[in-house]
Design a protein around this nucleic acid. Structure first.
Lengths: 151, 151
DNA sequence: CCGCTTTGGTTGTACAGTACAACGGTAATT
DNA sequence: AATTACCGTTGTACTGTACAACCAAAGCGG
């Protein structure tokens, strides 16, 4: 393969990922008006990594800690997560889903998964596996070397 | 491969694409503070499809026409696009990039591409090609069957 | 030709998500 | 003990977005 073909692939990846990002919010909003994309993502992380801290969320999603603070406050107000004081370090809040949070996430994930299943129904299992692996690899590369503040 | 493995792949795809969407804006903002993701996307479309109309943009990106109206107004104020009246249909605005818009997009695309090149430098050409093909295939499936308004 | 419907776009308004800055409280280090 | 580093909250401002109401221009049926 030539270098030009390599450039073409990278360009396509760039374009398609951008297009996806552009549409993701609208699609998520249509799929789950009751739980916005961001809240959904954070809740999923909290359920997955129970006992995580707000700082972890900020680092993982490239969000400012103030944003996380407000988002988590919102989830708490909705009764979906609990913020517990950490007895070992009084600065830290340990985050846990409530039962309602677990339930809501489960149903949300189920319908999201169903939507993806439908969209991907024509794909072979091998293609799905490889596509998943590529995405994981791509995203894993992105957590290192974070640049500084935007402005 | 079992059905369970298939589900796992779909679940990973869902998770990773969501994570990507979550980070895209922040990454774009860091890469190009002067041209936000949305403006960039719309400008790229206008350059690509010269003479397109605001309605086309709204349909393609699942945006409300008011959003497009304001975004395009912003691009015009920045001197990056022109809105020309259509002599055949006086309701329509025909959109064209200015020279400055062309130039800015070119340099923006160049540095975006460079960022992706760096991120993907360890990938083989074959992997890049396949990843690109998967993304194109995935996105192509998504343009059909748009649901109604959010609220 | 004249009202009715459709279509393209703008403006008013409201809200979510986000960032940065400044701060208060706690822990770690020196 | 003093200083530094870290975690989180609050104040403030801005962008992107949606929906609704509106205007103006086309298109259409009588």
């Amino acid at each position: 393969m030539t270098d030009g073909a390599r450039d073409t692939s990278v360009d396509s990846i760039q374009r398609e990922l951008t297009a996806f990002a552009r549409r993701a919010r609208a699609a998520a909003a249509r799929l789950h008006p009751e739980l916005p994309l961001v809240s959904y993502t954070l809740l999923a992380h909290i359920v997955d990594k129970q006992g995580c801290r707000a700082t972890d969320l900020a680092a993982h999603y490239l969000l400012d800690k103030s944003t996380v603070s407000r988002q988590v406050a919102g989830l708490e107000k909705l009764g979906l997560v609990e913020r517990r004081p950490d007895p070992d370090d009084h600065r830290v809040q340990v985050l846990h889903p409530t039962e309602a949070g677990d339930d809501l996430l489960a149903s949300t994930q189920a319908s999201r998964l169903a939507a993806y299943q439908e969209r991907l129904q024509d794909w072979s299992a091998e293609d799905l596996e490889r596509f998943a692996a590529y995405l994981i690899r791509y995203n894993a590369a992105g957590t290192a070397g974070l640049p500084g503040p935007i402005r």
